[in-house]
Design a protein around this nucleic acid. Structure first.
Length: 946
RNA sequence: GGGCGGUUAGCUCAGCGGCAGAGCAUUGCCCUUACAAGGCAGGGGUCAGAGGUUCGAAUCCUCUACCGCCCACCA
């Protein structure tokens, strides 16, 4: 074969070539096959909010590594791709786009807006899938799904109705987290808390004057608050029942300033007497804790803040004001009245929306909730506790369980437009609307306005929950039915993803899985039984609760089985400063830019290397550069091998006729592949990648190839065929092991090899479908081979060090004089090695001649070293720098002396001898002898150094 | 207020009971026909601090300090 490979690796060529070949040959597709073990992954569907970011690149690289690895291991692998409609996140993106045209979604109206959304999602969705291909992801594209396609929509509706019928979904009036900007309720977990500088205002609430007050008490109660504007909605003041300061005023009536409303003082154990003044204003409609106090004391609710973030009519003269305006006015008014006692700076946490960072208002509202407490969350936790869902690394198990254990019911209804409409209808007749409400509804037939929505949301009638749109009310038979305008939380929909993608569109009876190890006979298994539960879910820890926990709950409840056996939790990609990458911070690295600059394999390799279990990672150009260099190294090493295969024919060369180096590298290769296999099984992809890097570079390239050159450069060399064969085997083995991480370059090179070595090449022969563990296999045992190789490497390094220290020019060869120590086994084998590897030493250490005997006298003007049982002398003539040589030897002596000291001390320790494992003691003894002998000889060298 | 993780070479990080490692940076020599995106050889560390467990601790335990995440209804 003509060698056309350039000396600089150009990733574009294989990247543009192979993906198409793989896809065209159907290597990514999968169908149930009872003869083969399934290995299935469903993609965490990226939101169609825009392009893929580095976090996606990481997530999908890791999945692809696992998929490709398991495929090469012979499993029937499937990786289901798709995208998520992304609810609020996506709607926000599109709304921002509209804002640039100075439009809001209300200008378009619901229908037009949704049309706009669908157009957006087509573009963004396609882009994401294209990017996954660029990355090299081996997804089964025939199964591509979207969380708002017909099938998934059917699943969502079916799930809603089913859960409603099982009384797990209910409508309730609660304090919910309301984002005034996104105009919707949010689940608790969608709220973030940020520390902000604020103030703590102390306000005087006067007693109603007609009451008898205890001796010496003041005429008011002071309450502390960070939100003075909410006082307009106060319906009580609460104190701790045992607080001596207030014991006697419990039950008394206060006059709420500005509103002149009478409110009682109630005693509630939830009040912390040590905070502030020990008296708390109670605003049931706008504070969770107050809501609960109000429930216990049957206090009235005053909703003074509206869903539009303005004060409601209940706020008296403050009605219509924005929250900030109202706060200013309330503070001013109270100050004027002399009711503001003081105002302290105060740092506290503020609730903000996870999608837009706006402040969250706790508002009273009627919403749909999934009852997760008790049953659902409990069972999900149980399945991890009993090992049916294992989490890797284990350190995530505790926080995961903790979250499930402290779970609260999940608010699943959203008031945005982009999403699955909830399958709920109301009968105007049965809903007991007031005349006034009906009129308002009539004014807004599409129920697009806030008022109409509120009326519907708060209607008291029994909702009609159906898969199919009802034509008449099932209760009264009348046709005046209207659909609830709410949509579902996007996470409700994605919680169904793992079984929806395999065809689930409603619950069904499921036969229990056969016992482990049973051979399944049936040929036409339903995909959901074959691939489900999936093998592993690969995800970042930021959506462990938001998504993973919910999938487990839904899987168990609706699909009768957990959605995955393993959860592989990886870290989050951060920038060089350790900050999370985000568009607003402007610190994002675009994966496509990296691919363009360094190649997809380099990107994948650096992501894989950085994916240390349980740790977030910082990425920068340096990582990509190092990986790019590695790809180049692979390229050039392979080029070298290819260049030496012109006269190669595959040969079965028995071990006995192979060189020490051949046997060594074959063994190391097998060990490396074995280790990589095991590490991948533990989801330690980082360690696997590092292991491959070290083997390829430091062992295969730095030593083996260099040694093999000797036999290759002489066409007539008797060892040439063995060297060629070993090179081919090793390269083949390591390319296979590298393929899951670096698919493009390995395929390209592997194909070249197949061609050069005369093995079948064609579209259907691909490294993708080759076996992970190829040759060489580990037939070497014992420590003879590695020990001999170690000795040779030490020897060569020692000579090189001397040459370098003495500034011997590279072109100049040196002579080597060797003296053997005591005649023993080690000296004998060293002698043999020296003889058999004379040429190797000569070539790698640039040595002209080797003279050796037992009684050699040190040549004049020579530098020296001790290697195992040998003393070596390198006469360097005028180049000798005695000072430098002395320092070098002294340094080594120093190191050896501390070593001798440490080891001696250990061996003099009785307890060590008694308690340490005997192998350890033996090892230490040997080491002492080694080190002592080396030390003695080096000291001798120093003494005669002239 | 709880929980988790981090602190190892100048930088970024592996290692997590038995001779302190890698990449980048750095010093010297080399364009040695696979690779200068490279080769060879160096220099550089009280493994945050203090206790403890152990024959033996960077590694296990406790505490402290600083950094970072996550959870929680402290007005």
């Amino acid at each position: 074969m003509k060698i056309e490979l350039n000396s600089v690796y150009n990733p574009e060529v294989p990247e543009n070539k192979w993906y198409e070949v793989w896809e065209k040959n159907g290597f990514f597709t999968s169908s149930p096959d009872a003869q083969k073990k399934p290995f299935s992954i469903v993609i965490p569907p990226p939101n169609v909010t825009g392009a893929l970011h580095m976090g996606h690149a990481l997530n999908n690289t890791l999945q692809d590594v696992l998929i490709r690895w398991r495929k090469m291991r012979g499993d029937n692998t499937v990786w289901v791709p798709g995208t998520d409609h992304g609810g609020i996140a996506t709607q926000n993106v599109v709304e921002r786009l509209l804002a640039k045209e100075k439009k809001t979604r209300h200008d378009l109206g619901r229908e037009k807006f949704l049309e706009y959304m669908w157009n957006w999602r087509r573009e963004a969705g396609d882009q994401i899938l294209r990017q996954l291909r660029k990355l090299g992801c081996g997804c089964d594209w025939t199964r591509t799904r979207f969380t708002m396609d017909d099938q998934h929509s059917r699943a969502v509706t079916a799930a809603f109705v089913e859960l409603y019928q099982r009384h797990m979904l209910y409508r309730g009036t609660r304090l919910v987290n309301w984002c005034c900007r996104c105009d919707t309720a949010l689940a608790d977990i969608e709220v973030e808390h940020v520390e902000r500088d604020g103030r703590l205002w102390h306000i005087r609430y006067p007693f109603r004057p007609d009451q008898p007050l205890p001796e010496g008490s003041s005429n008011c109660v002071v309450v502390a608050t960070t939100r003075p504007e909410t006082m307009l909605g106060d319906t009580a003041v609460a104190v701790h029942p045992d607080d001596p300061r207030y014991k006697d005023v419990i039950g008394k009536i206060l006059i709420l300033p500005l509103m002149n409303r009478e409110i009682p003082i109630v005693a509630d154990p939830a009040v912390d007497p040590t905070f502030g003044t020990g008296a708390v204003k109670v605003t049931p409609s706008h504070d969770q804790a107050d809501f609960e106090i109000a429930q216990r004391h049957r206090l009235p609710h005053e909703m003074v803040i509206g869903f539009n973030a303005r004060m409601t009519d209940r706020a008296g003269r403050y009605a219509g004001q924005s929250l900030a305006e109202c706060r200013r006015n309330v503070v001013n008014d109270l100050t004027e009245l002399g009711l503001m006692e003081k105002e302290d700076p105060y740092r506290h946490s503020v609730a903000v929306c996870y999608r837009c960072d706006s402040i969250i208002e706790p508002l009273e509202s009627t919403q749909w909730f999934l009852k997760t407490t008790g049953g659902l969350a409990g069972r999900a936790a149980q399945s991890t506790r009993n090992g049916r869902v294992r989490i890797f690394p284990e350190s995530w198990e505790k926080p995961y369980l903790q979250w499930l254990d402290h779970n609260r019911d999940w608010c699943v209804s959203r008031q945005i437009w982009w999403g699955h409409k909830i399958p709920v209808w109301y009968c105007l007749n049965c809903s007991q609307f007031t005349e006034e409400q009906l009129q308002l509804l009539a004014k807004d037939p599409g129920f697009k306005g806030e008022t109409a929505k509120m009326i519907l949301r708060n209607s008291s009638g029994e909702p009609i929950v159906r898969v199919q749109e009802p034509i008449v009310c099932p209760h009264c038979g009348r046709e005046e039915i209207i659909r609830d305008p709410d949509v579902l939380d996007t996470w409700f929909s994605s919680a169904l993803w793992p079984f929806s993608v395999f065809g689930w569109t409603g619950p069904r009876q499921r036969t229990p899985p056969p016992p482990e190890g049973t051979v399944i006979e049936s040929k036409d298994l339903a995909p959901q039984d074959y691939y489900y539960p999936t093998s592993v879910l690969v995800t970042g820890h930021e959506i462990l609760y938001l998504w993973v926990a919910r999938m487990v709950m839904m899987g168990e409840e609706l699909a009768s089985e957990v959605p995955f056996r393993h959860v592989f939790v990886h870290g989050i990609v951060r920038d060089k400063q350790g900050k999370k990458m985000s568009k607003s911070l402007g610190n994002v690295i675009d994966p496509l830019d990296v691919i363009k600059k360094y190649g997809a394999d380099a990107l994948r390799f650096s992501l894989a290397t950085s994916a240390v279990p349980g740790r977030d990672m910082q990425l920068s150009d340096e990582n990509f550069l190092a990986a790019r260099n590695f790809a180049n190294k692979i390229w050039n090493a392979s080029r070298f091998v290819l260049m030496n295969l012109e006269d190669y024919t595959p040969a079965d060369i028995p071990l006995a006729t192979r060189d020490l180096a051949d046997r060594w590298i074959r063994r190391r290769c097998a060990e490396t592949v074995g280790a990589v296999d095991e590490l991948l099984g533990q989801y330690d992809i980082s360690a696997a990648a590092r292991r491959l890097y070290a083997f390829f570079w430091n062992e295969f390239c730095d030593w083996y190839i260099e040694m093999a050159k000797i036999r290759l450069q002489d066409r007539a060399h008797p060892g040439r065929r063995a060297a060629q064969q070993t090179l081919v085997e090793t390269l083949d083995g390591v390319l296979r092991a590298l393929h899951p991480i670096m698919p493009f370059i390995t395929e390209e090179l592997w194909q070249s090899f197949r061609q050069t070595t005369g093995q079948p090449v064609g579209d259907t022969v691909s490294l993708m479908t080759a076996s992970f563990t190829g040759s060489p296999s580990a037939e070497e045992t014992g420590d003879e081979v590695p020990r001999s190789m170690g000795f040779l490497m030490d020897l060569i390094t020692s000579v090189r060090t001397i040459r370098s220290e003495m500034n011997v020019p590279i072109a100049k060869t040196v002579d080597m004089v060797v003296r053997f120590g005591a005649v023993n086994g080690m000296a004998e084998s060293a002698k043999t090695l020296l003889k058999s590897h004379e040429i190797v030493i000569q070539r790698l250490a640039k040595v002209a001649s080797i003279r050796s005997d037992e009684t050699t006298v040190r040549p004049a003007q020579s530098a020296s070293a001790v290697v195992g049982p040998l003393e070596i002398f390198i006469p360097v003539g005028g180049l000798i720098d005695f000072e430098k040589e002395r320092k070098r030897i002294e340094k080594e002596i120093g190191l050896l002396e501390t070593d001798v000291g440490r080891v001696t001390q250990r061996l003099e320790n009785r307890e060590f001898l008694e308690k340490a494992p005997s192998a350890e003691v033996e090892k230490t003894r040997e080491r002492l002898l080694d080190v002592q002998s080396k030390l003695k000889r080096l000291k001798g060298h120093l003494a005669v150094l002239v």
